[in-house]
Design a protein around this nucleic acid. Structure first.
Lengths: 255, 255
DNA sequence: TTTGGTAAGATGTCTGACATATCGTGACAC
DNA sequence: GTGTCACGATATGTCAGACATCTTACCAAA
């Protein structure tokens, strides 16, 4: 394990410390020399690690002064943002905001994809739903989640919008973890299968409005499942750096 | 000018060459030694430049083999994607896909912002609309665009969703350039003012659905204006690396 | 034909050095 | 007492050269 490069390790560790709240936004991170001593690597290695974080606008380097942590809303990398969100265990605000964003993108993707559905896409979607059902009956959680994600990926691809794909991609990893959590409940799996079938049926009509509505219903169900089954677990409030307050969320984006 | 660091220059130039099609996806970019010779900088400088591009998933470095260009849909940085899109002059597909994405995010933001509108936000929005009207009468294109963008930024902020803000931020710069282009036409300025007033009125009702619809209408108007007034200019089709085919776009996302 | 070794070329990392921007501090002049 | 200037401390920016290690291609030997 831990096969990553030294640069990757240093960058990872530094980002961890940032999202853990050790270096809040605006704070000065340790200098290159200090970090190279802490990690027992050369200064060049630390510099390259910092460059990767700077490219994601997590840090801003000021020559002669030092390196500072940018405010979270300046971060360019959804991936890093998601990591920050996950670090705050039990932070409902982050989870809800995430679903809000996902709802926007997925409903939009469905609406775009509907008129562009080819037979190949329809067949692929049917296959994924069948895989979900099979995995459900076999009790294979992993395969269930994989088929679920594949279904959404296919829609994303069918939308034909590269920007959309680029924006959504970093969400993928987080969704996988989250779906694995929620899909442990059998009832949720059944919900999900029904909803996916409805989305597929709507897409087959090639009608944008129907596809959007079906996907929107699916997102609402996802949010409901999350609230009902998962967010009962105790949430040890961690300080972190505090993502802003939650929005209404529930039906705010619903059409 | 050219105040950026050497690393920035090298990274910029390499990205330019990539989006220009000199190194298509999957291609092997010149080695570190070769690039350091071309730019007359040290190998470390080239390495740090590559690290910034790698952090945006534009390049993937494989030890012992070389450095390769990732397919465009793997790129993590909307900013870089937008640059690639802009490099393809007259690429209507990219422009339309961009508006599609913007429509999803802005309508979603409006729906989220509506129930969270405070008097302060309303006052700020009123101020921006007033500024647009004043700039219109005074004939100040620059101020008009600034007020326009400020209006949308305020809504984004009011939505209270950090992820949304993070996703939208890179779009800002491109929108500024594009709005400056389209807003040159007086008629479009008048359209825009009317639409912004409608959005503001809908937000004041605190009703998500109304706010969403008003913003959606605004997006439709923006797209119409773009098609009607701007895309008449001759488009010298450039090869580039070809963003995927366009979607329906026009009313596919409309509610 | 297959296998194995070796060399070439690529990136990964280290060491050490100098350049240059920023800022605090103290000496100096007023 | 106060403003100004110079200098040093500290930070990042860049360079040079070296060695390590991984991948691949090539070639010779079984």
């Amino acid at each position: 394990m831990a096969r990553k490069s030294l640069v990757g390790e240093v960058a990872d560790d530094l980002l961890d410390r940032i999202v853990a709240g050790e270096f809040p936004p605006g704070a000065l991170v340790p200098g290159e020399l200090e970090l190279s001593a802490q990690h027992e690597v050369s200064r060049m290695t630390v510099r390259e690690a910092m460059k990767t974080l700077e490219a994601q606008r997590i840090l801003s380097v000021q020559r002669g002064r030092g390196t500072f942590v940018n405010p979270v809303d300046r971060w360019n990398s959804l991936e890093a943002l998601l990591r920050a969100a996950q670090a705050q265990v039990g932070n409902d605000a982050a989870a809800i905001q995430l679903i809000e964003l996902r709802r926007m993108l997925e409903t939009g993707a469905s609406a775009l994809a509907a008129p562009r559905m080819t037979e190949a896409y329809v067949a692929a979607l049917r296959g994924h739903v069948a895989a979900m059902r099979a995995a459900h009956e076999r009790g294979s959680l992993e395969e269930f989640v994989a088929a679920d994600l594949a279904f959404h990926d296919t829609i994303l691809e069918a939308s034909g919008n590269v920007f959309l794909t680029a924006v959504f991609q970093p969400l993928h990893r987080v969704l996988e973890a989250r779906r694995t959590e929620t899909s442990k409940v059998a009832a949720i799996q059944e919900h999900a299968i029904r909803m996916h079938e409805a989305v597929l049926a709507a897409l087959e009509t090639r009608d944008s409005r129907s596809a959007r509505d079906a996907m929107d219903a699916h997102m609402t169900q996802t949010l409901d499942d999350l609230v009902t089954y998962v967010q009962d677990q105790p949430a040890p409030g961690q300080s972190g750096q505090g993502l802003p307050a939650p929005a209404e969320g529930r039906d705010a984006v619903a059409s």
